[in-house]
Design a protein around this nucleic acid. Structure first.
Lengths: 347, 347
DNA sequence: TACTAAAATACAAACGTTTGTATTACGCTT
DNA sequence: AAGCGTAATACAAACGTTTGTATTTTAGTA
């Protein structure tokens, strides 16, 4: 047998490596004249290998352009060092902030975060989860989950799974969503409004508290919930035109929109129809996206502690890993941000 | 049957979730009384295994809750079925649209897309690339790359890599960025503007053509480039205030802003200072994000064919895989979208 | 010098797939 | 019934790591 072990360095003519030849731990072992296991340990910085050898090996590794093979590592360790994050839409600044919190916290535990969008589609969500399962991620984070709870229940044995803002789930980290919406509606009531429209959004169990807050505030003020004042936003900006027409028809003095984007679109569409904001009508949004402060008028809205939610969710995940049970995440409440799009009632 | 299947976990007894033994292909093989290789082939739908057996095996697989192990597959096939997409910021609707195109096209080839954000940070970009390398992705897509070209050159042997909108790169798919910016500046010139400010953004080789277009349009119209009319946007909305002050100081009749967000912030800040848009000053943006049409006034801007760029980039990648060389992507040019934020010069 | 504990390293068996090759089973033809 | 081509399946060797255990080396002691 010919010894094929040597990876045949091709003319290393000064310029650095040229050969596209996967360098493995074995190659390094051969070059350093040690066993592959020693290379592994050296690269891990194990105390078990002599400092000098460690030094020599890692020098060799970077010099040879060694790139560890995650697949092999995952296979043997049964840990991928990966966290899966399943979000409806990363374009939404709201989820972007959450992802930020997740990534930050995960990094502190040497974990990488993988993100998949679902477009709020239930089927896509399942596919994303399935994908992460195959990838053998070490944990799954699902904000605003769309599927029925039973589905996640079947999963929770396979993999640690934490929901965000889904209070009916087994493991979840949530802020008091209803608190924020209650505050904004109360704010409108305090301004003298009585006919307050509410634009609902894509329905999902995770979003239910939003509506509860609206109703709670009205009831606290002794105002009945009028079904006629409910409108619906399908998430597309095209929809704001008919929304504007509907608002004119039902003639509220204030509208609490599903989110900031919806509020902005609505303001523009209403202005096109000759309705001044906030002079003729007050409009509040939700989420407090970056542009909310930049709109004209600046948007009154609800700010969510998304970054913190992301952080806490990751911590919760670790508790689950450690078989701990009673983790109580500390989440600040959403806060009302009063800006220029709401004003005292004029009629 | 011996208990060899139990992988003897340390501790964790009691509180946590109980150990589930993952189902492997071997388990299915045992249950179906066939060889593991037959299971693999059955699951792949290979003609080599009898239809009835195939049927039986896949029934068994789903019944037993089998989840394929990507790591093992990747290890042996040397293909991860994964595509890496490295973007500065997925929050940017612009990159979101690109990702959409990439995902769509990749899906048609049974590939999954993994996305990593870099925040426009060069170090983060390298880390992201390194990460993807370890993950053994089948291809790398990098729009608006930040690092010097030499860096990517060293990579291109290891992995197929396609840039988006980076014309100095070896393999790239780009639209004629300068064309869009030239069109918008020409539009302003046609409206009678002569003093046209330009707000630059985070510099990167990929963004150079944007500025070239600005200068080209001026030169074509016989207007000199006045360095005093150049401003800078650092990407944060906080920056618009000082930007507004600067605009007032240098007193252009029109401003071409780095992007739509910048334009919106600037409009609001200028209004706060008593300057009407577009009556006193015209402002154009870039990117044509969804909210651009919803702003008040609706933004004149440049629409990019990002979705198409994403698609074409993936196709290019496949050409590279197939060792084909002369792929010429067909990319529509960016188009000018005239809305309400620009008007004829009044002074 | 012989002996031993500790340090350093080597060995070998996994991890869960895939795939080329070898083997068996089956249905024909003669 | 022997022979044969093919269909169906089994075998076995990878892929690149990690890690428990065995072995060697080293240095320190008696």
């Amino acid at each position: 047998m010919v010894t094929a072990a040597t990876p045949a360095y091709h003319g290393t003519m000064g310029t650095g490596r040229q050969k596209q030849q996967r360098i493995t731990i074995k190659d390094i072992a051969a070059a350093a004249d040690v066993d592959p296991s020693t290379v592994t340990r050296a690269l891990q910085g194990s105390e078990r290998v002599k400092a000098e050898t460690r030094q020599r090996i890692s020098a060799l590794a970077s010099q040879m352009g060694y790139v560890p093979n995650m697949a092999a590592r995952t296979l043997v360790t049964q840990r991928s060092q990966l966290l899966g994050l399943v979000v409806p839409d990363m374009t939404n600044p709201f989820f972007a902030a959450l992802a930020r919190g997740v990534e930050e916290e995960a990094a502190s535990q040497q974990l990488q975060v993988l993100i998949r969008n679902t477009d709020g589609n239930e089927v896509a969500e399942r596919e994303a989860i399935q994908f992460f399962l195959e990838l053998k991620v070490d944990g799954l984070l699902i904000p605003m989950a769309r599927c029925p709870d039973a589905y996640y229940a079947t999963l929770s044995d396979d993999i640690p799974l934490v929901h965000v803002n889904r209070i009916d789930a087994r493991h979840h980290v949530s802020c008091d969503m209803a608190h924020g919406t209650r505050a904004v509606v109360k704010h409108l009531i305090d301004l003298g409004h009585r006919r307050i429209g509410f634009v609902t959004g894509p329905s999902s169990p995770a979003q239910q508290p939003k509506r509860n807050g609206y109703e709670a505030a009205l009831q606290e003020a002794g105002i009945g919930v009028d079904k006629d004042l409910l409108l619906h936003f399908d998430g597309s900006l095209a929809c704001v035109e008919e929304l504007a027409d509907a608002v004119i028809r039902i003639a509220p003095t204030a509208v609490f929109a599903w989110n900031d984007v919806c509020a902005m679109g609505l303001i523009r569409a209403l202005r096109d129809r000759g309705i001044g904001i906030p002079t003729d009508l007050s409009i509040a949004g939700h989420d407090d996206i970056a542009l909310a402060a930049c709109y004209d008028p600046p948007l009154t809205t609800v700010h969510w502690p998304m970054y913190e939610l992301g952080q806490q969710a990751v911590r919760y995940l670790f508790q689950l890993h450690a078989a701990g049970s009673g983790f109580v995440p500390a989440i600040p409440a959403p806060t009302l941000v009063v800006r220029g799009s709401t004003a005292a009632v004029t009629r």
